[in-house]
Structure formats: structure tokens, C-alpha cells
């Protein structure tokens, strides 16, 4: 069994009072709770804190934990002789058990998997994982291999974390923040209880060309000044291959050109749109010939884009 220093996790002295422990937990929960925190690794940190608090807030568990002595975090250790007789009426092997699963059996609570724990069905636990997918995967749908550690119970009813690979089908229709439920892919149920569910929180990886707004996509479309003035047809990339887009003559910078139904597919029906935002791009260096042509144009043109400045 690997040692975890619950006091260190919470930044507490071993002599901390129950009140100190509660106060510190509340402070850390506000800082790291995944629903309210923007800290990096908030979820992981919160899990560690919650696990430590679960043991330290309970006088019986805390006393049992203190008697384990102080070791280096992560160090393999065995409880001192007689420990299990003092704190538990159960036999168990300490091999491959997580410290938190050991303490989950204290205070009259039977381990979830206890063979002696009655015959009534217990549903499996639900799990939630964050999954990043590409825009192409959101568009086409995809199948991902998710690696998870799920508990399995030994004959004494103790949980052992076992790595699982869950194949998750992500149907098309995802967008940022969308949730997906995979039925029966969480923890196993006991005594015939249903298996838990696995919830995926989907987020989208940034794409080099497309930006996402709901199910719509935005793309910057640079045009030369002469393409914008004269009009043309250009090739525009979409997630489902290139399309030809007609640029009307007199197109201005900032104008949005809509390519219908080339956004992300919606889960129920249809798809968002792709918007190409026109940018007028100019060459930063020009040849002598080009410069002469521009000079000729400057001389000929009556166009004044700032005429409205004078109307004040």
C-alpha cells in the first residue's frame, strides 16, 4: 500500500484541531473545486484534498490514520502489527489497495464490494471525464479509446483500481461544452445492480483555420484589392472539402459571406453555417511595374473612403 500524507496535502500540521481542518478544507474547496475553479489541475488537486478531508474530519479515521505513522508520500508501507484488529473487524490484505479505499470501509460503512454486505443491488458509480476532440471529429463523429481506472472488488470487498480502455463512440453533433452519456460504462454494479454511467465533457481543440461559435464556423478570407473590386470565384476550405465561393464585385473588408450548412452538424438535424469574413490583403512589397499601376490608379480614381469624416 502506498502512503499518502493527508496533512501535507491540506497544508496542515499534525496537531491541527478539527476546526482548523474544516476551515482549511473550505478554503481549498473554494480554490480547487472543478465547478468554480479556473486553476490548472483543479480537478486533480480537489480530489486529493477531498480524499484527505474525508479521513481527517472523522475522529475515528483520523486516529487510525495517525497510527499508520508518518512516511514519505508514495512510499510502500504496511500498517503496524495489530492495526487492523484495533480499527476493523475485517481481514484484509494490504497489497494493491488504495489508502482511500481502505478508509472507505471505516465507521460502520461496509466496503461497496463486501460479500457480507447484503444482497440488495447496488448501482455502479458514475464517472465524468474531460475529452478533447478535433473539429474534424466533431464534424464526422468518431470513436475514441478512453483510458480509465475503475474499481474492481476482491473477495474481501476491497476495491482495486484496474485500468480499463473504454471505446466511446462520439456521434457527430458535438460542440464546445456538450455532454455525452455513455450508458453502463462507469463502475460495475453489485449484487445485480446496474452499471454506472460515464459522462464525457467535450471540448474542441483549436483549429488553425476555423473558429467555432456554437455550431457555426468562422474563417478569415483574405482577398486582394482587385479581387474585391472586380469580383471573382475563390476556393474555400470547409470540413467537408473545398467549395467554390462567388465573391461579388465591390466586396468590402469585414463583410461576412455565408456558406450554408458547412458548419458543425447539429445533434438533432441540420448543421450550422460557415461564415467567411473578408479581409482586404495588400502586398507589403511591390515590383516597379506594380507600383506604376497603383500610381496610375491613384491618379485616376475619384474614390474617397473618408468622405463621411467631413460631414461632422
Amino acid at each position: 500500500m502506498k502512503y499518502k500524507d493527508y496533512y501535507k496535502v491540506m497544508g496542515l500540521e499534525r496537531t491541527a484541531t478539527a476546526e482548523d481542518i474544516k476551515k482549511t478544507y473550505r478554503k481549498l474547496a473554494r480554490k480547487y473545486h472543478p465547478d468554480v475553479s479556473k486553476e490548472a489541475n483543479a480537478e486533480e488537486k480537489f480530489k486529493e484534498v477531498a480524499e484527505a478531508y474525508e479521513v481527517l474530519k472523522d475522529p475515528e479515521k483520523r486516529a487510525a490514520y495517525d497510527q499508520l505513522g508518518s512516511h514519505q508520500p508514495g512510499q510502500d508501507f504496511r500498517p503496524p502489527p495489530g492495526w487492523e484488529q484495533q480499527f476493523s473487524e475485517r481481514d484484509f490484505s494490504f497489497e494493491g489497495i488504495d489508502l482511500s479505499d481502505l478508509f472507505a470501509t471505516f465507521g460502520g460503512a461496509r466496503p461497496r464490494g463486501a460479500a457480507s454486505g447484503g444482497r440488495h443491488p447496488i448501482p455502479g458509480e458514475d464517472y465524468e471525464v474531460n475529452v478533447k476532440i478535433t473539429l474534424q471529429q466533431a464534424c464526422d463523429g468518431s470513436e475514441l479509446d478512453l483510458r480509465l481506472e475503475l474499481p474492481e472488488y476482491d473477495t474481501h470487498g476491497f476495491a482495486h483500481r484496474v485500468p480499463h480502455t473504454v471505446k466511446a463512440r462520439i456521434p457527430k453533433g458535438a460542440t464546445e461544452g456538450q455532454r455525452l452519456r455513455l450508458s453502463g460504462k462507469g463502475g460495475k454494479g453489485l449484487n445485480g445492480g446496474r452499471a454506472g454511467n460515464l459522462y464525457l465533457n467535450i471540448s474542441l481543440e483549436p483549429h488553425p483555420l476555423f473558429r467555432v461559435s456554437g455550431h457555426d464556423l468562422y474563417l478569415d478570407l483574405p482577398l486582394t484589392p482587385w479581387e474585391a473590386v472586380l469580383g471573382t470565384t475563390v476556393q474555400v476550405p470547409t470540413l467537408k472539402g473545398d467549395v467554390r465561393l462567388k465573391i461579388p464585385s465591390g466586396t468590402t473588408g469585414g463583410q461576412r459571406l455565408r456558406v450554408a450548412h458547412r458548419g458543425l452538424p447539429k445533434p438533432h438535424e441540420g448543421a450550422g453555417d460557415l461564415f467567411a469574413i473578408v479581409q482586404i490583403a495588400v502586398p507589403t512589397t511591390v515590383s516597379d511595374d506594380e507600383r506604376k499601376l497603383f500610381e496610375a490608379l491613384a491618379e485616376k480614381s475619384q474614390f474617397d473612403p473618408r468622405r463621411h469624416f467631413e460631414r461632422r
Binding site: 448501482p123 480502455t165 471505446k167 456521434p171 458535438a174 456538450q178 455525452l180 452519456r181 450508458s183 460504462k185
Partner: peptide, 28 residues
């Protein structure tokens, strides 16, 4: 350990859940 693909269900507002289903899913 590897398993086949599961039933995937988008939790979006176009789809409805019955009271029984919500009770079962929430554990309340």
C-alpha cells in the same frame, strides 16, 4: 481490458428524460 462501444447519448435540450429516468440517473 477492452470493451465494445457503449450507447452514446447527447445530453442536449432537444431530448427529453422521464421523471423515473432522472431519479435513476441522479441518485436522488
Amino acid at each position: 481490458m477492452s470493451e465494445g462501444p457503449a450507447d452514446s447519448l447527447w445530453l442536449h435540450h432537444y431530448r427529453m428524460c422521464s421523471l423515473t429516468e432522472v431519479v435513476e440517473l441522479s441518485g436522488l
